[in-house]
Every structure is written in C-alpha cells, then in structure tokens.
C-alpha cells in the first residue's frame, strides 16, 4: 500500500536523526570525561575546579531558562546561601566535606521551593523581578548576620577536611577528583531531566504555556519542579565552590553573580545542553587571564555581552548546533 510506504519512510528518518543526536551526545560525554581526566595535568587544578563549579551553576541556570522558559535574575541566592551553609557547617560544626556540601545543597533546594512558589505566580519580566527582589533580600540577610556569614569578611579558611572522614582533600589534585565527579554527576542529571517525560512537558510549557494547560497539564506544578531542580543544582555548585576556595563571601550572593550566570549561559548557548559549560570556560578564563586589566575586565565582559546579544544570539554552541543541524 502506498499509505503504508508513506508512513514508514519519514518515520525512519525521525528515528535516524534522534539516534544520530543521541550518539553524538554520548560521544561528547566521553570527550568531556576524557577532558576532565587530562585537565588537572595541563592546567592549574584550582582554575579547572573554578570552571567546573561555575559551569555547573550555569548548567543549573540553563535548565530553568533554556528548558523551563523561566528567566531568574536571582540565582545567586541559591548559589550563595548554599556556599555559606557549606562553609559554616564545615568550619564551625566540623562536618565532613560531603555532608557540608549536601547540607548546602539542601538549603539551596529549600530556598528554591519557597522562592519558586512565590515567583511562578507571575510571568515574564515580573517573574524575573520577583526572583531578583527575593535574592536581594538574601543578600541583605547575609550582610546583616555577620555571626553566620562573617559579614564583609565572609567565612574564610574553611577546612577542606577529609572526604567520608578518610581521604584528605587538602591537596588540590585530590580534591579535584571530587569536584570533577560532582560536576559530571550534575551534568548527567541535567541531561536526563531534559530528556525525560518531565522534560518533554517542560519544553511544551516553555513553547506555549496556555496550550499545555489546555491539554490538561497543571503548568505551575511543572514550573515549580524545574525551579526547585535548578535551585538545588545551583546550590550544589555554590556549596562545592565554598570547599574548593575555602571561602564563602558576599560576592556569592550579590546580584552580579546572578548576572554572571546569565552571561555564561548566553555566551555558551541558551537552551543547548553543553553551551553553559563553554560559556563558563570563556567567562572564568577571561576573569583569570585578564585579571591584570583590573576593572577593565567588567568592561570587556560588558562588550562581549552586547556583542553576544547583537550578533551571536544563539551563543557559541548554539551556532555550532545550527551549523551541523543537530541539537547539542
């Protein structure tokens, strides 16, 4: 039958492209794993760990904006608060690093649940403004409670401690493997979320919320869930960062941190799986290697941001993805 033939042929094409993308992604994951193994031998491990923490942060942010369609301008709150909790509990309660990181992450998740429930009642710019306002409240809280946050000084000299009470993390090259594992775990989780039945619904809501509702999806529940997932992973990034740098400070909760993560995501490629990693590498490398320029780093960042929005709207990975006609 001609009918049968016409249904079969395009169907084959679809599965082929899907499989092609899946194979490409698997190869990319292998490449990333290899890069993670090689990186500490060719670059300064603390630098690589910094990149990994910010890449995870950007991945978390991109999950919310790129796949949930929700622009948060307050992601510093989850990153920074988790960083404080992790630093405080490691230093003052003597928690082992994995417990301190877990606790920080849990606080990020809880904060995300409360803030998310408030913010998802509004849409678009109002949503962004609510997240920003709530994050500013976290900043002022951090400023006003020096007993907990150390105020202007932050929490310094956080002990890295011993992983599970056994493995001493004082050596950068040892700590690196923990950070690499956390990053890879976070990346794999985000990849799975994006490619799950839940992720499909999120993408539908992102594309056309009224339509998703008219199909019977309770959109706000999905939005809250993706918000909490994003805040949790942002918290994981912040908590890990505190252990790496042995420092949690007001910089982590300040609104510029929220802005930086937007920048990383846009530079790398909004709504691409791997873009935020590239964006984080670019921005962190710039901050490090252009550090001699002092305040001019901010100017350079600003110029890149403007250029990105004007010329490079899909970001680096977005452009590549378009060129090879495969989702990345």
């Amino acid at each position: 039958m001609t009918d049968l033939a016409s249904t079969d042929a395009p169907a084959a094409i679809v599965t082929e492209t899907d499989d092609g993308a899946a194979r490409l992604h698997r190869n990319l994951f292998i490449a990333i794993a290899v890069a993670l193994v090689i990186a500490p031998f060719v670059a300064y491990p603390v630098f690589v760990m910094k990149v990994l923490c910010f890449a995870l942060f950007a991945l978390a942010f991109n999950l919310l904006l790129g796949y949930g369609g929700l622009l948060s301008f307050g992601h510093a709150a989850y990153f920074g608060m988790a960083s404080y909790v992790s630093a405080y509990t490691a230093k003052n309660w003597g928690l082992t690093p994995e417990l301190a990181i877990l606790l920080g992450t849990a606080v990020g998740a809880a904060l995300g649940l409360v803030f998310g429930a408030l913010a998802i009642r509004r849409q678009g710019i109002y949503f962004a403004m609510i997240t920003l306002a709530l994050a500013q409240m976290v900043f002022f809280f951090s400023l006003q409670t020096p007993g907990f946050t150390g105020g202007e000084d932050g929490i310094q000299a956080v002990p890295r401690g011993k992983l599970l009470g056994l493995i001493d993390l004082a050596d950068d090259r040892v700590l690196y493997w923990l950070v690499a594992a956390i990053f890879m775990g976070g990346l794999l989780l985000i990849y799975r979320v994006i490619h799950s039945p839940f992720g499909q619904v999120c993408k539908a809501i992102r594309d056309n919320e009224p339509r998703a509702i008219s199909l019977g999806y309770r959109a706000s529940q999905y939005k809250l869930m993706v918000f909490v997932l994003s805040a949790t992973l942002a918290g994981l990034a912040g908590a890990t960062k505190a252990i790496v740098f042995q420092l949690a400070s007001l910089t982590d909760v300040y609104w510029t941190m929220s802005g930086e993560v937007v920048l990383m995501t846009l530079v790398g490629g909004l709504g691409t799986v791997f873009g935020p990693i590239v964006g984080a590498i670019v921005i962190v490398a710039m901050q490090n290697y252009l550090a001699t320029l002092g305040a001019w780093v901010t100017v350079v960042q600003g110029v890149i941001f403007v250029l990105c929005v004007l010329l490079f709207r899909e970001g680096i990975v977005g452009v590549i993805s378009k060129a090879i006609r495969k989702p990345l």
Binding site: V14, R192, Q200, V201, A212, Q221
Partner: peptide, 25 residues
C-alpha cells in the same frame, strides 16, 4: 509547540491522556 517536532507535539497530548502527570524527571 514550535520548537518540538510534529511527532512530539501530538505525543505530548497522548502523554497526558495515557500517563496522567509526568513528574518523572
């Protein structure tokens, strides 16, 4: 849903009818 494939568009509706909610991330 403009960024989803034609197949996925229809499947999103089937997903709701057959599976109810999809919170399984």
């Amino acid at each position: 849903f403009p960024q989803l494939s034609v197949l996925t568009n229809v499947r999103i509706a089937l997903q709701r009818r057959k599976r109810g909610d999809s919170f399984d991330f």
